[in-house]
Amino acid sequence: MSGIALSRLAQERKAWRKDHPFGFVAVPTKNPDGTMNLMNWECAIPGKKGTPWEGGLFKLRMLFKDDYPSSPPKCKFEPPLFHPNVYPSGTVCLSILEEDKDWRPAITIKQILLGIQELLNEPNIQDPAQAEAYTIYCQNRVEYEKRVRAQAKKFAPS
């Protein structure tokens, strides 16, 4: 494992614990031996107030490669969400998460999670990743928002 990646992720964890947006979660997972795995984080993004996503808490896994922060983490909703920019596998399609697009090593975990929260309610229809959600979003916004509200209710924190 890269010392650069681990040191950056340790800084990220410290900064997150000191200050993070209300309702968001970002925690490194534990290895079988109980030690912390900084390369694999369990996160959760709350649906934004005043949107059909409100009330939901959407679980996301963030996986970092050894060359982080040169390369972005892979962000994957578990379980996958109904959304035009979420692949059926759950992987998020967002330009700041793509090395050859808008990724920059200075982007923080907090910025990534806030960017994904923004994307939930403002899909990028130029870059669809899920045919069904994309089609319904474009053709029947009322039905799309109904499905999103049902999903938010399903993923409401207990």
Rank of each mutant, 00 (worst) to 15 (best):
P46M: 05
R149C: 05
D102C: 11
I4N: 06
V86M: 12
Y137V: 00
E78G: 13
G34P: 00
C43K: 01
R61H: 10
P88R: 15
D66T: 12
Q11I: 14
N121H: 09
N31R: 11
C75H: 04
W103K: 01
A156F: 11
R149L: 09
C43P: 08
G56I: 02
G50P: 00
H83S: 02
P52L: 09
T29A: 13
N40A: 15
V27Y: 10
K30Y: 07
P73H: 02
L97K: 01
F82D: 02
F24C: 08
L94G: 00
C138Y: 03
S70C: 13
E42G: 11
N37P: 03
K76P: 04
D67L: 03
G47P: 01
G23W: 07
T51S: 11
G115K: 00
N40Y: 08
D127P: 00
K154A: 12
Q151I: 09
A150V: 11
E98K: 14
P72L: 01
N40Q: 06
R104K: 11
F64A: 03
N31F: 09
P32D: 14
N37Q: 14
E118R: 11
P157S: 12
A156M: 09
P123G: 02
G115Y: 05
P105G: 10
F22L: 06
P72R: 06
K110G: 05
Y144S: 02
G34Y: 04
P84S: 07
A15E: 12
S7W: 08
T35G: 07
P52I: 11
M62L: 08
H20F: 04
N40D: 14
A26E: 02
S7R: 08
F64Y: 10
K48Q: 09
F22K: 01
P123I: 05
P79D: 14
S95F: 00
N37E: 14
G34Q: 13
C93H: 04
I96G: 06
K49S: 04
C138A: 15
T135D: 07
Q11Y: 13
D19I: 04
T135V: 15
K65L: 14
E98C: 06
F58G: 05
N31S: 08
S2C: 15
E54S: 12
Q126L: 10
A150W: 09
S71L: 07
I125H: 02
I96T: 15
Q111P: 15
V27H: 02
V92I: 07
I109T: 06
Q130Y: 06
A156K: 05
A15Q: 14
L60Q: 04
G47K: 02
R17N: 01
Q111M: 13
K49W: 08
D19G: 10
E54W: 06
A131M: 06
R17H: 01
A131P: 09
P79I: 15
Q111A: 14
I45D: 04
G23R: 04
V92W: 04
S158R: 11
K65Y: 09
C93K: 02
L57V: 08
P157F: 12
P105T: 07
F24Q: 02
F155L: 10
D127G: 13
K14T: 05
K18I: 05
C138K: 14
A150Y: 13
I112S: 07
L114E: 11
Q126H: 10
F24S: 05
S7T: 11
S71Q: 12
M62P: 04
F82V: 03
P128Y: 01
S95I: 00
G56S: 06
R149F: 09
L114H: 09
E118Q: 09
H20A: 00
V27R: 14
D127S: 15
H83M: 02
L81E: 00
D127F: 00
A150N: 12
S95W: 07
K18S: 09
L63Q: 14
P80G: 13
C138N: 15
L6S: 07
Q126M: 11
K18Y: 06
D102Y: 09
I109Q: 05
F77E: 03
R147S: 08
S158L: 11
Q117F: 12
G3W: 12
A152T: 08
A150E: 10
N124D: 05
A156C: 10
